[in-house]
């Protein structure tokens, strides 16, 4: 018998953002909201993180942009997007209809663009926070160049921090030797939370034609194949900082998400699994509540960082 007669609470406050539960959707895997609205009740999501936005509309890479591999997929979309104004005009009226916090994932080709994009969202109604993408492997400038160099990452986060009053969540690259150093640098530069992991740089070659399959030649690996890598990076990052950590990478089930929370994540995001099964987020939320009941926990917070070592 459970001690707690009340259903367990999944309520999570992260970087000042109040969420009904700690399960969000990962940037680039859920569009801007309307795409999945017929299939998923958007009010049930902990938060919606929209696809990466830079200053002006951006074309992204040529096709093929995506290829399935064992245990995941490699994408090289190249951050196609409508730009700040296009996003705000086209999608914010829709997103404001829901109670779910909206986190905008932003990027730039240089520091100045990152700063400008961040500043532009300060006056936009209905935005709960900014996720700063310094870890995209699919653009030549910006992206991962910042996320794999400690000085550049720290400098960029500090500069963006000065230009926004919104909660700022740098998204870290997984392919660094000591992710804890990047996590701490982000905290010291003024981040309110950090999220990780972004996709891992990866490639597929067609052996008949001997050509790379993706037009961009290389892309980013996501899906269940990267989950254990992500758990390790989240575990390391969480120990290095006192700000909250958002864990993601290969979540398909509640168990995968719970693992991140035990490793130290205060919240999680579902990415590639939205494509496989759009009901994943809702299944994860329900499964997490069941787990708390089974383990006699009253709040999801008890799970965070509860790893036994």
């Amino acid at each position: 018998m459970s001690k707690h007669v009340q259903p367990p609470s999944l309520v999570t406050t992260l970087a000042g953002i109040a969420m009904d539960n700690p399960v969000m959707v990962a940037s680039g895997t859920f569009g801007y909201g309307p795409e999945y609205a017929d299939l998923v009740d958007l009010n049930r999501l902990g938060a919606i993180v929209v696809k990466g936005i830079c200053l002006e509309a951006w074309n992204g890479n040529n096709i093929p942009r995506m290829i399935e591999v064992r245990g995941g997929l490699i994408n090289a979309i190249g951050l196609q997007g409508p730009g700040v104004d296009g996003f705000v005009e086209t999608y914010m009226p829709f997103l404001r209809q829901f109670d779910t916090p909206v986190i905008v994932n932003i990027w730039g080709r240089d520091e100045a663009e990152y700063e400008e994009v961040a500043a532009r969202f300060d006056d936009v109604d209905g935005i709960a926070g900014l996720e700063l993408n310094i870890s995209c492997p699919n653009v030549k400038e910006g992206g991962i160049a910042f996320g794999t160099d400690l000085t550049m990452a720290s400098d960029l986060i500090g500069r963006v921090r000065k230009r926004t009053s919104l909660p700022l969540i740098p998204k870290l690259a997984p392919n660094v030797p000591q992710v804890g150093l990047f996590a701490r640098a982000a905290e010291e530069a003024g981040a309110d939370a950090i999220s990780l992991i972004n996709t891992l740089p990866a490639m597929v070659i067609d052996i008949e034609t001997r050509r790379p399959v993706l037009a961009n030649r290389v892309g980013g690996l996501s899906g269940p194949a990267i989950h254990p890598v992500a758990v390790k990076q989240v575990w390391e990052a969480a120990q290095a900082v006192s700000i909250p950590v958002i864990g993601m990478g290969g979540i398909e089930t509640a168990a995968d998400a719970i693992e991140f929370m035990i490793a130290g994540a205060s919240a999680v995001a579902v990415g590639t699994a939205n494509f496989t099964d759009p009901t994943t987020v809702v299944r994860v939320i329900d499964g997490m509540a069941d787990y708390l009941v089974r383990h006699d926990m009253a709040t999801v917070g008890e799970l965070v960082g509860s790893i036994c070592e």
Partner: peptide, 10 residues
């Protein structure tokens, strides 16, 4: 990828 307009693969 997604089939619904979210991923921009197609």
């Amino acid at each position: 990828g997604c089939g619904v307009g979210a991923c921009l693969a197609c």
